[in-house]
C-alpha cells in the first residue's frame, strides 16, 4: 500500500484537526468571546472619553467611529495571537502535540503553515463579529468597511506568523509577559486612539514602523471609505512582514522539533 502523501505538508489537515477540537462551539460564541473586550474599549474610550474629546485634528467622523476600525484590527490581531501564542505553546510544551505530528508524513513547514492558517481563520471570525458590533452601534461610515474582514486575513497572517516564531523561543509561561510588554504599548500608541499626526516627527517615524500601525491604517482606510494607494502599501507591509516571520518560524520550529 502506498498512500499518497498529503499536499502542502498537510497544513490543511492541521486546520481540520483544530476545527474538530472546536466542533462543539459555534463560530459565533467564539466571536463573542473575542469581541467582548474590544467592545468594552469602544464603549469606555469611544463613547466615554469620546464625549470629552473635542474636534481631533485629522478626524472628521465621530470619535467612536474613528477608533472602532482600530479596535477591529486589534481584535483580529489578538485572536491570531491567542492561537499561535499561548495555545500553540501549550500544545508544544505540555501536550507534545507537534512531536506526534512530525513522525507522520506531515512536515514542519506544513505544521507551521497550518497553525498560521488557523490563526487567520480565527481572526476572520472575530473580524466578522466585530463588524456586526460596529454596525449595531451605527458607526458604519462607508460600505467599503466590508473589505475590512478580508483585510483581517492579512493581519492574522502577519501577527500569526510572528507570534508562532516568538512562541518557538518561550522558555515558560512567564516569558509571555514579555510579549505583553511589546503588544500593549503597540496597542496604545499605534494610532488606535489618535492620529499619528499628534506625535513629534521622530516618534511618528517610529510608530509608522509598527505592524499594528499598518493593520490599523488599512482597516481604518477601508472603514472610513478613504481609499488611497497608501492602503496597498499597508497591505504589502503586512504580507512581507508575515512572510519573513513565516520563514523564521519554520526554521525555528524545525530545530525545536528535531531536538
Amino acid at each position: 500500500m502506498t498512500p499518497t502523501l498529503p499536499r502542502a505538508g498537510g497544513a490543511h489537515l492541521l486546520v481540520v484537526r483544530n476545527l474538530w477540537v472546536h466542533k462543539g462551539g459555534s463560530p459565533w460564541t467564539m466571536a463573542l468571546f473575542s469581541v467582548f473586550e474590544p467592545v468594552l474599549y469602544l464603549l469606555a474610550i469611544g463613547v466615554g472619553i469620546g464625549g470629552l474629546v473635542g474636534q481631533v485634528p485629522g478626524v472628521e467622523v465621530p470619535y467612536a467611529a474613528y477608533i472602532a476600525p482600530a479596535l477591529l484590527a486589534t481584535a483580529v490581531m489578538n485572536s491570531a495571537l491567542e492561537e499561535t501564542g499561548q495555545s500553540a505553546y501549550a500544545k508544544l510544551a505540555f501536550d507534545r502535540f507537534y512531536h506526534s505530528l512530525i513522525v507522520t508524513p506531515m512536515t514542519v513547514g506544513g505544521v507551521v503553515a497550518g497553525e498560521v492558517l488557523w490563526g487567520m481563520l480565527r481572526g476572520l471570525i472575530t473580524g466578522a463579529g466585530f463588524l456586526v458590533v460596529i454596525a449595531a452601534f451605527g458607526l458604519v461610515q462607508s460600505p467599503w468597511i466590508l473589505l475590512a474582514v478580508p483585510a483581517g486575513l492579512l493581519i492574522g497572517f502577519a501577527f500569526g506568523a510572528a507570534s508562532l516564531a516568538a512562541t518557538g523561543y518561550m522558555r515558560g509561561w512567564h516569558d509571555f509577559q514579555y510579549v505583553q510588554l511589546v503588544m500593549l504599548p503597540m496597542f496604545l500608541f499605534a494610532t488606535t486612539f489618535y492620529p499619528v499626526t499628534v506625535y513629534p516627527p521622530v516618534i511618528r517615524v517610529l510608530v509608522e514602523t509598527l505592524p499594528l500601525y499598518h493593520a490599523i491604517e488599512l482597516v481604518r482606510g477601508l472603514a472610513l471609505g478613504r481609499l488611497a494607494p497608501g492602503l496597498l502599501l499597508n497591505a504589502a507591509y503586512l504580507i512581507v512582514f508575515g512572510a519573513l516571520f513565516l520563514v523564521w518560524a519554520r526554521r525555528r520550529w524545525a530545530w525545536l522539533l528535531a531536538s
Binding site: I45, I49, G54, L188, Y194, V198
Partner: peptide
Amino acid sequence: LFLLAIGAGLGALV
C-alpha cells in the same frame, strides 16, 4: 503605559 497613552496622549485632546 496607559497613563502615558490615555492620560497624557488622549488627555491632550480633551
